[in-house]
């Protein structure tokens, strides 16, 4: 396998794992983790794309920005999760599925 093929497999694996996690987990912390995995897939793709188009620096600087933005989202997500645990006493998504119809 060439490098780019390995990267491609990696991206797809991360995306797949992230989305799969989001589809099946009922735990809020795991949801945040799955989101992280998903975004990491995008991140890897970005770096690889920079590499492939001969713009290595661009790709890497973008990746840095993504990491920052992504961390902010993760922090907010975890804060909401903590609040959910405090308020509802559970991290189960079942307690967060009352808005229907």
């Amino acid at each position: 396998m060439t490098t780019s093929e390995i990267v491609l497999v990696g991206v797809l694996a991360l995306l797949g794992a992230g989305l799969y996690g989001l589809l099946i987990t009922r735990n809020l912390i795991k949801v945040v983790i799955a989101l992280q995995i998903l975004v990491k897939g995008g991140l890897l793709a970005l770096v690889a794309a920079g590499e492939a188009s001969g713009q290595t620096n661009l790709g890497q600087s973008l990746a840095m920005t993504v990491i920052v933005a992504d961390t902010v989202v993760a922090v907010v997500g975890l804060a909401l999760a903590i609040q959910a645990r405090r308020l509802l006493g559970t991290l189960d998504l079942k307690a967060l599925s009352n808005l229907r119809g």
Partner: peptide, 17 residues
């Protein structure tokens, strides 16, 4: 149609996919 708004996050993500 209202039954499609289940309130479940997993289901909502499935909508995106």
């Amino acid at each position: 149609l209202r039954t499609t708004q289940t309130g479940w996050l997993n289901w909502n993500v499935a909508g995106i996919i």
